[in-house]
Each structure stands twice: as C-alpha cells, then as structure tokens.
Simulated scan of single mutants.
Amino acid sequence: MGRYANHEDFGANAPINFREDTTSESYLKGMSGIAPPGMKPKAMRGKRYEDNTDFKASVKWHRNFDIAMFGGTDIGFPESETKQMGLEQKIDGIERKPGRR
C-alpha cells in the first residue's frame, strides 16, 4: 500500500509536507551533492527556492500530481487555492503524516 490511503489523505498531507520539506537547507544540500568538486551553491539561490515554494506553488504542484496520477482533479483553476484550503482543513479528521523520514 502507498503512503496515503486515499485521495483525501493525500490532499490533506502532501501539500503541507511539500511546503515544509522545500527549504533553503534542503535545496543547498541537494545542490551541494551534485556540484563539481570545490564548488558550492550560493545561499541566495536557496533563499529564492524557499520563497518560491509557498502555498500557491504547493497548490500547483498538487493539482499537477493529481492530474498525472488520478487522470483528473477536483482542484481546478481558478478556485484551486480555495479547494486546496478545504482539503488541508480536513486534516482534523485525517491522520497527519509528516514529510521526509
């Protein structure tokens, strides 16, 4: 069985995990791993990365994933942000599954 039991479980957990896991530290760590020897990524790029992975970015990411995996989405534009908020508010009835292990 996958990490999420159903689509509501996925919608209530995954976008929150996306926002929590996309930090400047994770970006810089990943980029350092692929950088040529003796070079390291600029801290400013990590900051920009984190700034661009906000709520709006998590809605877009979730919508695209939903289309790719489920063949459609209940998070359509232009009201996608409102629907995403509705899914995330369901977390009270759904078990919270933190991001990276």
Results as ranks from 00 to 15, higher is better:
M1I: 04
M1T: 05
G2R: 00
R3E: 03
R3V: 05
Y4W: 12
A5D: 02
A5L: 13
N6I: 06
N6A: 06
N6R: 07
H7K: 14
H7T: 05
E8A: 10
E8H: 09
G11V: 06
G11Q: 10
N13I: 02
N13Y: 07
N13P: 12
A14L: 10
I16K: 11
I16S: 06
I16A: 11
N17Y: 03
F18H: 07
R19A: 07
E20K: 15
D21F: 13
D21I: 13
T22G: 01
T23G: 01
T23F: 04
S24L: 03
S24W: 08
S24E: 14
S24Q: 13
E25C: 01
G30F: 06
M31W: 09
M31R: 07
S32F: 03
S32M: 11
G33Y: 03
I34F: 08
I34T: 08
I34L: 10
I34N: 02
P36S: 10
P36K: 07
P37G: 01
G38I: 05
G38N: 01
M39L: 11
M39G: 01
M39A: 04
K40V: 10
P41M: 05
K42Q: 08
M44Q: 13
R45H: 13
R45K: 06
K47V: 13
K47A: 13
R48N: 09
Y49K: 03
E50D: 05
E50V: 02
N52V: 03
T53M: 13
D54F: 12
D54N: 15
D54P: 04
K56S: 14
K56F: 14
A57I: 06
S58K: 00
S58I: 08
S58M: 08
V59H: 00
W61R: 01
W61T: 07
H62P: 00
H62A: 14
F65W: 05
I67E: 15
I67F: 07
A68E: 15
M69E: 14
F70R: 15
G71A: 10
G72N: 15
T73G: 12
T73E: 11
T73P: 08
D74G: 11
D74N: 14
I75S: 04
I75P: 01
G76A: 12
G76N: 11
P78M: 09
P78E: 11
E79F: 03
E79M: 08
E79T: 13
E81A: 12
E81D: 15
E81C: 02
T82D: 14
T82K: 13
K83Q: 05
K83V: 12
Q84A: 14
M85N: 06
G86H: 07
G86K: 10
G86I: 07
L87D: 00
E88F: 00
E88A: 02
Q89R: 11
Q89H: 05
I91P: 00
D92V: 05
D92N: 09
I94D: 02
R96I: 06
R96E: 07
K97E: 00
K97V: 02
R100S: 10
R100N: 09
R101A: 09
